[in-house]
């Protein structure tokens, strides 16, 4: 399993570049991660990368971070995992600190207020778009429709805590899998 991989410093720099140059979140980072680790550095095979994605999507947390931890660990053990994670996260952290320091200072500037009056509704549209993208992948049979609908009603109308809904949904998935012939049919990737 453990072979002599690249040094953690090199892994750190590779993920630092990925973290610094991708806008639009984790899904936007995946193509650049792939280009770096599969095509440029040849650390991971094409199939290996798809396997890694199927795992990192089944684990909670930010997709880009999950993928960085996994690839880093595969390349150089725990030091590699920490190096890749630090690299992927550090640019975000520093840029946001700078932006937050400036933004909290000027948030009341009339021009900024106008700008954000325009941006806020767009963000609502953006999150609706995320629902559409994820829904298209996941909603594919009666079970997934019922679970999605129930989760929505419980949180939106009944005011239930979303953490509880996630735990209940895990239970529903387990329960559903007990029926013969249904295992893994809810929201699983093809």
């Amino acid at each position: 399993m453990r072979r002599t991989g690249p040094p953690p410093g090199k892994i750190f720099l590779a993920f630092l570049k990925i973290g610094a140059f991708t806008f639009g979140g984790g899904y936007a980072m995946l193509p650049l991660i792939r280009e770096t680790v599969v095509e440029r550095e040849k650390w991971v095979s094409d199939e290996g990368f798809l396997d890694i994605l199927s795992l990192t999507q089944s684990v909670p947390g930010a997709l880009a971070v999950n993928t960085a931890v996994f690839i880093g660990r595969q390349l150089a053990g725990i030091p590699g995992a920490l190096a890749a994670t630090a690299g992927a996260v550090l640019p975000s952290f520093l840029v946001i600190l700078a932006v937050a320091a400036v933004f909290t200072r000027f948030a009341q500037h009339p021009l900024l207020i106008k700008v954000f009056m325009g941006i806020r509704p767009a963000v609502v549209g953006l999150i609706a778009y995320a629902v559409f993208l994820l829904g298209r992948k996941v909603i594919r049979n009666a079970f997934t429709v019922v679970v999605a609908g129930a989760a929505f009603i419980l949180v939106y109308y009944a005011g239930l805590n979303p953490f509880l809904v996630i735990i209940a949904a895990a239970g529903a998935g387990l329960f559903y899998s007990f029926f013969p012939g249904t295992a893994g049919k809810g929201g699983e990737d093809p």
Binding site: S58, V147, A148, F152, V155, S177, A183, G187
Partner: peptide, 18 residues
């Protein structure tokens, strides 16, 4: 794991929609 994930994934859609 597949069973648990298969329940959570659609629920997340409902949560984000809310």
């Amino acid at each position: 794991v597949r069973a648990v994930i298969s329940g959570i994934r659609p629920a997340v859609i409902g949560l984000i929609f809310s």
